[in-house]
């Protein structure tokens, strides 16, 4: 098997977009929150290159207040991995889907079973922020066997030797965590955001996307001076919490798309 055939749908899709000279935009939306399906479709239509669907977990340690709140509301409304994933095949987006959730849900279901459920639901990739490289091999193997790309997170604190291993292990894209902290918008882009993306770019030709702490289209453009793209989450979910619905999400994504395209 040559290496090209091992590239999954997420990575292939993002590489192709990148090759056209476009900066990449991934939008996170909390699955199970009222109106999330429409928000996903609108985000894709407004120019998101991939969608990250959150499967709410009881103890989201990597998430700040906005996503915590949406997760809690979704859980109280009865959201479960099954209910969120059941809706995915009906989503009309035309772009790849990743899930973003926490490791215990995969551990509890069993790696093979969870990976198969994702694959059968039309999910291409998975992000498990509390599963660091050192603990991730069993899950990554099971996921790869089911055709699920595991997106690894690289942090500003990651040392050089592990960064190379981590980028090598990551499938789909490399998630460069832009700052020391949890998800959420910040007033300014942290200096670490371009630093970590630059360090990743030096050791991998996989798409490198910066997420955590991006709060405006201007910051996204700044981050993309180094990164191949950005992931935006809290700023999107806040539109849903504020009751702006899919339309508000669509307008927001369009503003990021336009800013990135204008460079």
């Amino acid at each position: 098997m040559n290496s090209a055939s091992k590239i999954g749908r997420m990575e292939r899709f993002l590489r192709d977009r990148r090759d056209t000279g476009s900066k990449l935009l991934v939008a996170y939306i909390t699955g199970g929150y009222e109106g999330w399906e429409a928000a996903v479709e609108t985000a894709a239509a407004a120019g998101a290159d991939a969608i990250e669907i959150g499967i709410p977990f009881s103890d989201p340690v990597m998430d700040g207040p906005v996503i915590q709140k949406a997760s809690q509301i979704a859980l109280e409304a009865g959201a479960s991995p099954a209910s969120v994933l059941a809706a995915v095949p009906n989503l009309d987006t035309g772009v790849p889907h990743a899930v973003m959730t926490y490791y215990n849900l995969a551990h509890h279901a069993g790696h093979e079973r969870f990976a198969a459920t994702l694959a059968n639901s039309g999910i291409d990739a998975a992000i498990l922020p509390d599963l660091p490289l050192v603990e991730s091999a069993p899950w990554r193997e099971a996921a790869a066997a089911a055709g699920i790309e595991t997106i690894m997170l690289a942090a500003p604190t990651t040392p050089e030797d592990r960064l190379a291993d981590l980028c090598e292990a990551s499938k789909g894209f490399v998630y460069a965590v832009g700052l020391l902290g949890v998800t959420g918008e910040r007033a300014n882009l942290a200096a670490t955001a371009t630093e970590i993306a630059g360090r990743c770019k030096q050791v991998t030709d996989k798409p490198v996307l910066t997420g955590v702490g991006i709060g405006s289209p201007e910051q996204a453009v700044e981050a993309c001076s180094v990164a191949d793209g950005v992931i935006i989450g809290s700023t999107v979910v806040r539109r849903l919490l504020d009751g702006e619905g899919a339309e508000g999400v669509g307008d927001l994504i369009a503003s990021y798309r336009n800013a990135l395209d204008a460079g």
């Binding site: 340690v61 509390d130 599963l131 660091p132 490289l133 942090a155 990651t158 965590v177």
Partner: peptide
Amino acid sequence: DGGRFGEFGGRFVPETLVPA
């Protein structure tokens, strides 16, 4: 070395905290 007691234990934290 990985902090296991039998199968239990380990280090399941976000990458940011692994170096710490």
